[in-house]
Nucleic acid binder design. Structure first.
Length: 495
RNA sequence: GCUCCCGUAGUGUAGUGGCCAAUCAUGUUGGCCUUUCGAGUCAACGACCCGGGUUCAAAUCCCGGCGGGAGCACCA
């Protein structure tokens, strides 16, 4: 301990630029840390999930521990069968190493056993009151008539429950906590319920008694050997409920930590809404660029690395925070700027004739800082030579009278035509603007923007190997190339 | 209504009694540089929720307000 303090003190003096790092986990032992990610399989992962997934992964990697992906599929109403495959795919894309996968619907008999043990301890009862009545009595700190039934009676009712003697909503297994607990959120909670109307996508109608999240979480967190749990603040009260189970069974609790809630502005995240939208054709799929899914981020050219850096930077504090697209984009730009080849794209293209010259050659680097990567070359001829420029640029250029076609020529404009006036870069010192152009060997290109709009224009011919890569359309922004032929489709990343 | 959590610049973050007239990042503005409105570079802007108390000394400890969030589900 003292050594640690000493080293941080000396470090502090030496550090000029401090990189934000996550704090150490209390009681973490190298090689012994076990953590988990516990999504409900209602769809693929979205930005909100990435925080908890990344943070847990960061710690597992730091301590050379184990990362468990626990699929919490105990509510058949909210299961998308495809999610069982999509979640691991998304985790892999995020660079998260999963060491073990647990699916809760495969463990129902195990949960049933523990339920029996709990009944034997007198810590649970089977309630057959109408749900509203039970809830109301709880609010008033009153026990329902079944609260104090004997172990024998309770056990008998439990077996009847399992045997299907009760219909849906006719009986629940309740974990006793403390009806007089000042916090109404902590008083007796439901551990198992009956589900018969919706078959489970994986188990069919094999089971009619379904465990509830709070029961499974406590049981699994213990039996899977978790040492540290990091999750959202919305689970704060759940942890207090789960604590009762740990105490009844005599288990030691892992270290639980709850970070603040994140609000992600302008993000479409809600799985059920998106799922419906996909069915109706409103969205093209889970990777529709308007969505906040991991898939959409990938499609747009957001790097997993940038998302990771963002969450590490946010830390694990309990304060609620607001997600900043600007900051994520800054981290992402930092990563893609180095690797993105540059191309010329002109939205709303307008033809422009360049008179007074027979042919023009253009040679521009794929990346201005890395000429060794090669060049884009165009050899233009014709009488006159025709190029395309964007409508907005053309308007401004006509107003200015002179303009530099980037890496090509200086031209003088009047009445929609232009005249070659040399190639001397000194003209830039005279505040002449540079604009982009494409030759008549262009490809049509549609850029899909995150707000759902499209920018249609021409792009200079792209090498086939740019498909799937992030490139920069000069003076337009970074995009990820979806396809190259027959026409180019690209997804806007950010500026 | 009850219970719990939280409150440092626009956003995120460092800071656990003195080295804090407060760190870093992002953002914004301006300069330089650059054949992109990208990158780089230099500078500026911008914060300890409020009020008491403890102390020689408080962003840091205590109390009270105020503000924000979550939970009180037979969802996760």
């Amino acid at each position: 301990m003292l050594e640690r303090i000493d080293s941080t003190l000396t470090q502090k003096k030496e550090k000029v630029e401090r990189v934000h790092k996550l704090p150490d986990l209390p009681g973490a032992v190298q090689g012994k840390v076990v953590m988990r990610f516990a999504p409900g399989p209602s769809g693929p992962l979205h930005l909100g999930h990435t925080r908890v997934a990344v943070l847990n992964d960061e710690y597992v990697k730091r301590y050379d521990g184990k990362f468990i992906n626990r699929i919490e599929d105990t509510n058949p109403d909210k299961i998308d069968p495809d999610a069982y495959d999509m979640i691991p795919e998304d985790l892999e894309w995020l660079g998260i190493k999963v060491h073990e996968t647990v699916v809760q619907s495969e463990r129902f008999p195990f949960y049933y056993d523990l339920a029996r043990q709990l009944i034997k301890m007198g810590k649970a009862y089977i309630c057959t009151c109408p749900a509203d009545d039970w809830r109301k009595m709880k609010e008033e700190s009153r026990p329902c008539p079944h609260h104090d039934e004997s172990v024998e009676v309770t056990m008998e009712k439990w077996e009847k429950m399992l045997a299907g003697h009760y219909g849906e909503e006719k009986a629940v297994f309740v974990v006793k906590t403390d009806l007089n607990h000042p916090n109404p959120a902590i008083r007796d909670f439901v551990g198992f319920r009956i589900v018969t109307s919706t078959p489970h996508p994986r188990q069919g109608s094999k089971y009619c008694v379904y465990p509830m999240m709070n029961f499974c979480v406590a049981v699994d967190d213990h039996f899977l050997g978790l040492t540290h749990v990091i999750r959202g603040k919305d689970h704060l009260n759940n942890t207090l409920r789960q604590e009762y189970l740990f105490n009844y069974f005599g288990w030691t609790m892992p270290w639980y930590h709850h970070y603040g809630l994140v609000s992600i502005p302008d993000a479409i995240l809600k799985t059920s809404t998106v799922g419906k939208g996909i069915k109706t054709g409103e969205y093209s799929g889970w990777d529709d660029v308007r969505l906040g899914t991991v898939r959409a981020m990938a499609k747009r050219g957001i790097q997993a690395d940038a998302i990771r850096a963002f969450w590490v930077d946010c830390g694990i504090k309990e304060v609620d925070i607001e997600f900043s697209w600007e900051t994520l984009y800054a981290y992402n730009r930092d990563r893609i700027d180095k690797i993105a080849d540059r191309f010329s794209f002109v939205p709303e293209p307008q033809p422009l004739d360049v008179c007074g010259v027979d042919h023009l050659d253009s040679k521009a680097p794929l990346h201005p800082d890395h000429p060794e990567r090669g060049y884009r070359e165009h050899h233009l001829s014709g009488k006159p030579i025709m190029v395309f420029v964007s409508e907005a640029d053309l308007t401004q250029a006509i107003e200015a009278g002179r303009v530099r076609l980037k890496d090509l020529a200086n031209v003088e404009l009047k009445a929609g035509k232009s005249k070659f006036i040399g190639n001397d870069l000194a003209i830039l010192k005279e505040k002449v603007k540079i604009i982009n152009w494409v030759p008549d060997s262009y490809q049509s290109c549609t850029v899909f923007m995150p707000d759902g709009s499209k920018k249609v224009g021409y792009v200079e011919r792209l090498p086939e190997d740019e498909a799937g890569k992030v490139v920069q359309f000069e003076r337009f922004g970074f995009v990820r190339i979806g396809r190259i032929s027959p026409d180019v489709e690209a997804y806007y990343t950010h500026n």
